[in-house]
């Protein structure tokens, strides 16, 4: 019997997929509230899959980059990404021991909490006067729907190692 060697995903693949997500993000869809955050989905996927290579540092810098792109106050997207990635790390067993559909539901919760955190900060700053339900919900639903697709596309990569041993 051949020994099973678990190879981690290379940085090249990670960077390329995140760049692709970013390109989708900056595609001129116009200023509408339904546009999902493609890069956040890719980022969360890699944080789940290869936590030893992706953690909160790239999440922070990509968030700042996204703030510059959307001419948002610097740090708003960064907080969203940090919260989402942190929850992925904390809930990794809930994610990894789950079916594809179950994972999508967990990811929906994570995206919802992260997005709500962003809207809450903007609301506290007084820049939005009321919670827009469509802006809160629709991107999260779309991102959760993107999750299985992304998982199928990138499933050729080795199985994840539990980084938090029981």
């Amino acid at each position: 019997m051949k020994p099973i060697v678990l190879k981690s995903t290379s940085y090249g693949v990670i960077i390329l997929t995140i760049l692709f997500g970013f390109l989708l993000n900056i595609f001129p869809f116009g200023n509408s509230d339904w546009v999902p955050d493609f890069m956040l989905v890719v980022l969360a996927f890699w944080v789940m899959q290869v936590p030893e290579k992706m953690d909160l540092t790239p999440a922070f810098f990509l968030g700042v980059l996204m703030d510059i792109q959307t001419s948002q106050y610097l740090g708003i997207h960064a907080i969203t990404y940090l919260v989402a990635c942190f929850l992925v790390i904390v809930w990794d067993r809930r994610l990894l021991n789950n079916t594809l559909l179950g994972q999508s539901f967990v990811m929906f919760q994570i995206f919802l909490i992260a997005n709500a955190a962003q809207l809450f900060i903007l609301w506290q700053m007084g820049t939005i006067r009321e919670f827009s339900a469509s802006y809160l919900m629709i991107p999260c639903v779309l991102q959760a729907c993107l999750w299985p697709v992304l998982k199928k596309i990138l499933s050729g990569h080795p199985a994840p190692i539990h980084h938090n041993p029981l």
Partner: peptide, 17 residues
Amino acid sequence: APLLKLFFFLLVCAALI
């Protein structure tokens, strides 16, 4: 769980905002 890291970056974010 990288709590320390999270707090550090959240502080940086708050300072940036």
